[in-house]
Design a binder for these strands. Sequence first.
RNA 1: GGGCGAUUAGCUCAGUUGGCUAGAGCGUCCGGUUCACAUCCGGGAGGUCGCAGGUUCAAGUCCUGCAUCGCCCACCA
Length: 967
Amino acid sequence: MSETAPTRPPSAAPPQSALAKTYDPAAVEAPIYAMWESGGYFRPQARRPDGEPYCIIVPPPNVTGALHLGHALTTTIEDILIRWRRMLGDEALLLPGVDHAGIATQNVVEADIARQGLSRHDIGREAFLERVWEWVARYRGRIADQQRRLGMSCDWEREVFTLDAGPQQAVRSTFRDLHAGGKVYRGHRIINWCPSCRTALSDLEVEYVEEPGALWHVRYPFAAGGGESGGGGIVIATTRPETIPADVAVAVNPDDDRWREVVGRRVRVPTPGIERAIPIIADAAVEIGFGSGALKITPGHDMLDFEIGERHGLPAISVVDWDGTMTPESGPYEGLDRDVARERAAADLEAAGHLVETQPHEHSVGHCQRCDTVVEPLISNQWFVDVSELAAKAASVVREGEVRIVPERFAKVYLQWMDNIRPWCISRQLWWGHRIPAWYCLRCDGAGIQLSVPRSSLPEGGPGLEASPDGAHWSGSAAAIAAAGLPWDRIAALATDPTIGRDVTPIVAADDPAPDACERCGRGPLLQDPDVLDTWFSSGLWPHSTLGWPESNDDLARFYPGSVMETGYDILFFWVARMVMLGCHNMDGAPPFRTVYLHGLVRDAQGRKMSKSLGNGVDPLDVSDQYGTDALRFTLATGSSPGNDMRLTDERLQGSRNFVNKLWNGARFVLGELGDRVVAPRAAAGDPSLALEDRWILSRLAGLTAEADDLLGQFQIGEAGRRIADFLWGDFFDWYVEASKVRLRAGDDAPLGVLAHVLDQGLRLLHPFLPFATEAIWQRLRPHLAGEDGPALIIADYPRPGAGRDAAAERGFAGVQEVVRAIRQVRADRGVEAPRWIEAYVVAGPGGDGDALRDRAAVIETLARARPLRMVAARSEAPDEQVVTQVLDRAEVVLPLGGLVDLARERARLDKQIAEAEGHEARIEAKLANPGFTGKAPAPVVARERERLRELRQRLDGLRERRADLG
RNA sequence: GGGCGAUUAGCUCAGUUGGCUAGAGCGUCCGGUUCACAUCCGGGAGGUCGCAGGUUCAAGUCCUGCAUCGCCCACCA
């Protein structure tokens, strides 16, 4: 223990006279957690000279949310890794935080004030943000409390919120830097718009759902010159006839022979009342096979059309407004909701004779990820990040293996996305979030900035101003308002929710603080961009912003790049990809973490995704109340494998709870046997003074230790947990503890050291999985361990591989187990009453196997309830009348059971065993007769087969003899 | 349209450099109040590892094709 170790806190669990008979998580967990926290064990601390920094940044949950099972899974995996590395002596940091979750949180608070009949516009930006901060204050602590309940060993002193000053600074800094490099820009482009949230969305925030719709085939008549043509035209297919008024062209594929002739001609927009002729153009993006092969081009409301429009220098017309209703440009449909307009437009086309055909058509429709409203592609002035260069770097760090993704297959998905990345729309027309650090000069740009001011501040109005429908506001350009007599500084103060025109040039200052004068006119006033940034922009900076970037400091140097990023595969693009891009960018090409571990979804017992609408969501704390946190963690850890979904069932949780209870009771036994003794661990495998079972369990422990180390190192967390549990329950409790009782009951204390040692090591191995129960037990075991002065299991040394296996002991005890099982089998088969002792003969010749059996006869006796047990060297020394015989690999067991013996049944049993053994023998013989096998298979494999065959033949001889005896 | 995953005992799932006479838990059947534990102990039954080919001495594990279910991506008019 180094001198930096924290002082020993008062023990949370003083040794008691007796442990409760059943493990009670509710009584154990809280005091244990308090002990860890007050002991300062969550603070990173290297406890060995070559201890390395090991850092996991916790994915920040939404500040106003509650944890769900996905969080519990993340928590479990991260905490297992952190506890493991902490116990290895590394400087382990699990860094917690919460996310402001822009649109999600804003929607929650908006829904709340809507219950009072208010909208955010009613109360204004400042008052609204105050309300949100109230929510944050109310809920912020809840997440951390829930994480504590899950046993998460975070360094709480470092907890960060995305809207803390540090991360705010990081966001501004990054934005400015990307802007200076030309990677952040403002542009008038087509974006995904949610008419309900009233904000732009990124491509990722749109969820496409297959929905039934219709495909309307519409004839666009040829226009001759400027006038009417005499019939004919071109037929296009559309799912959105309401956008026809926004058409600016019809496109066909240049290689489409059907339409080659008409390219260059003009057609009339067929909507009644729209007198407009549009060109027929040729563009390779049009698919020849679809519909008639002709496509209407609507750059204002379709992503592909926007691109085609740009290629051909076509204008864009907007017919759907920001609230989802039709604009004046739509002609007859002005003011209608877009869905109503669709029906109306189709009917009008039919009435006008332009509708050729209507077919049902399944197609995917984009919905807002947050509110499920159908997203409207429309043209808007937004901020974008040109991520092409960032993505190239982010792809290369994964390709080059600098960042490893577990499971590996997700690297392919990640790379595919990176290689086809498009500009990222980062501005959101929300109030809650990181406000965009760009300003506009009212004086210079007044003509391009639209805003509304209360009529009270400008009673007379003026030219260019328009009264709002309720008459309470004037709206118009800032310049017009100034011309009407309102002073500039008053305008700036009133301008809470302005609209910034496309020709206005933003001012992005090089540094904090905010600019106070226009860099062009030297005066101002300046108006900050009203929009906020996509939540994921700040999330993308999380791995370095939480460590204090852009200030350089110790933490950043030590803990960046982080070791592991653990999260669900569902946010691979949203978050992981952005962290890699922005991390590499800000940190001189250094990616934010070395390994990405992706877990799957936690589903319910029926395999359904847990969701609010289904009402099948499970609160991890309820599970913890019912089964204990350890049981929940163990279930999540062992029931999941990287990248794969898992089902959480009560059966599994019960199984885990049972295991925790088993551990608790196994420990009760050991502690009870120890009494008040302090024992030196008997740890040396191969020590000839130890009994066979001692050497066996120590060898098994050595094997387990090596396996656990290997598996954890490969992120095979579930497999590691299962192996440790199997060892404890199977090898240790079922066999070693039972065998140890033989000597203990005889007054021989020798097993105590082994019991204490194996329990101690088992608790250490298991601690990352079951932190509470293992710590609670260990606190009671510690006083019995000579030389152990560590204050808590959480910072005790994790067992490291090194001790060798004892092959002889493993083989020897396997023989004991084989004999015990064989006797138990016969007892059960013949219906021998459980408490009854039966006479038994074990036939074993001289040699290692036989010696081991003779040596441990007392163990066999007790475990098989076979007394007297006679060890004999030859079959002839055992009776052969009215006996049941078990022929094993290393011995034969003869049980004189008198009247219980049924000869016919014995013959049948032996015949079956002989047949099975012969089948097996034939398979091995064939294998060994194959020169390909003996020639090409590795020598140890061949040797093992030979040995198997030898044992098998020996056993077959025995079986045949016994069969012959029975006639 | 492209990509990915799953398909192993009645159920839920492990099985990572091919060597398995394929495992676990639950369920099921038989038997148990042995002084750590009935949230337990002992014993049993139960699988042509989705289908068809291929590579290999050897395939649940690698390759190809197919089927069913699920997911992701795409500018599916």
